Amino acid sequence: MILVTGAGGLLGKKLVKVFDDDVVGVYYKSKPETSRYLSLDLSSLNIKAIEDLSPDVIIHAAALTDVDKCEKDPGLARLLNVDVTREISKVAERINAYLVYISTDYVFDGKRGNYREDDEASPINVYGLTKFEGEKEVMRFSSNYLIVRTSTPYGSNPASGKDNFALWLLRKLKNGEKVRIVSDQVTSPTLNTNFALMLKECVEKKVKGIIHLAGASPLSRYDFSVLLARTFNLDEGLISPASSSEMNWIAKRPMNSSLNVEKAMMLENKPLKIEDALKTLKKEIEENENSEII
């Protein structure tokens, strides 16, 4: 049995889908699309229900990922991203489960980009710091683990009651609204379907240590937005470049937190180039009868 925390989130929804019948989705507010699920408030740190299920694999995808909210409420960020991870790591060790922890490119300071798995982490905001501390809790308490870092996930499905960046942008462009997007911050945008398939393969092969599972094309949010508009035949002229210094962000962002994915290229399900990822996104949205995007 595979247990996925954060099963109603952007990554969690795809993970429970690719693992199909062999999965239990753990959620708090956003119900997952799986036949077996467990409603649990992880912030209580009472996770005996997970231990009682005794899964073979625990994929810990639940986290506070709102970067500015983490900055405003570091206590909550520490509770959800560090303390919860510690307790899950302890449970995984007690029941001899293989633990997969979903981390982020924001553990790096963003001064150079193309970060490898063994590069030194140096987070510059509370979100990155608490996720890195979560990594350390996994390594401290679990002897059978995989730490997976990803970057700027997006997908065809709304999650936790809101659109991801790609869906937000598509709605804006479809409505003819002008948008200003930062052009000086580089990441490795990751289609959640590609991520889920890569992670499934890692679980099946029991890959251990740290691996970067992200898109194969580092680019700015502005360049990503222009390619997205072109893929969906929308007006890219509605998109204007902006500097990150113009944004009303509370937390600092790494300027180039792109991830090196050479290690993941050894998988059968390889990291997708941005053009292929966006074609897959378009196909998924077209096949979704309930989609209002196109």
Rank of each mutant, 00 (worst) to 15 (best):
107 V>G: 03
131 K>M: 11
189 P>N: 05
280 T>W: 05
155 G>I: 04
143 S>Q: 14
197 L>R: 13
140 R>G: 01
12 G>D: 03
158 P>M: 06
148 V>E: 03
132 F>N: 06
75 G>K: 12
123 P>H: 02
181 I>L: 00
278 L>E: 00
205 K>N: 11
54 S>R: 15
54 S>C: 11
61 A>T: 14
293 I>K: 03
39 S>E: 15
32 P>A: 13
88 I>C: 03
274 I>H: 07
252 K>Q: 13
76 L>D: 01
226 V>Y: 08
178 K>I: 02
79 L>V: 00
136 K>W: 04
79 L>R: 14
24 V>E: 00
56 D>R: 14
184 D>K: 07
74 P>N: 13
41 D>S: 04
48 K>Q: 09
100 V>F: 07
74 P>Y: 13
223 D>G: 00
6 G>V: 02
198 M>Y: 05
289 E>S: 13
61 A>N: 14
26 V>K: 10
48 K>E: 14
282 K>C: 00
230 R>N: 15
203 V>Y: 03
11 L>E: 10
52 D>P: 00
167 L>D: 05
94 R>F: 06
46 N>L: 06
229 A>G: 10
208 K>P: 01
128 G>H: 00
240 S>W: 04
157 N>C: 10
230 R>M: 09
182 V>Q: 04
65 T>L: 06
279 K>D: 12
261 V>L: 00
246 E>S: 15
193 T>V: 15
71 E>G: 07
113 G>S: 09
216 A>E: 05
222 Y>Q: 05
13 K>E: 10
30 S>P: 00
198 M>S: 10
63 A>S: 15
211 I>L: 02
103 S>I: 03
149 R>N: 08
175 N>P: 06
92 A>Y: 00
69 K>A: 11
242 A>Y: 01
18 V>W: 09
76 L>F: 12
128 G>D: 03
199 L>M: 08
191 L>E: 02
185 Q>R: 12
237 G>W: 03
208 K>W: 00
238 L>V: 10
187 T>M: 08
50 I>W: 03
98 Y>H: 07
243 S>P: 06
225 S>W: 02
93 E>I: 00
249 W>N: 15
166 A>H: 05
189 P>I: 03
286 E>A: 14
154 Y>H: 09
106 Y>M: 14
15 L>C: 08
2 I>S: 11
221 R>G: 04
223 D>L: 08
131 K>N: 02
87 E>L: 02
27 Y>S: 11
164 N>S: 11
7 A>Q: 08
248 N>E: 12
219 L>M: 12
96 N>K: 15
130 T>H: 08
232 F>H: 10
76 L>K: 13
131 K>S: 10
75 G>C: 04
146 L>I: 02
40 L>R: 07
36 R>L: 09
115 Y>K: 06
62 A>I: 01
253 R>G: 05
218 P>N: 04
191 L>Y: 13
9 G>T: 08
275 E>F: 06
38 L>D: 06
284 E>W: 03
133 E>D: 13
100 V>C: 08
133 E>R: 09
26 V>I: 05
61 A>C: 13
165 F>P: 07
245 S>G: 07
78 R>L: 13
208 K>L: 13
255 M>W: 11
168 W>R: 10
130 T>K: 07
36 R>V: 11
44 S>M: 08
259 L>H: 04
138 V>M: 00
184 D>F: 08
139 M>N: 09
227 L>S: 12
141 F>C: 03
85 T>I: 01
243 S>K: 13
179 V>H: 07
171 R>K: 15
28 Y>V: 02
113 G>I: 02
155 G>F: 00
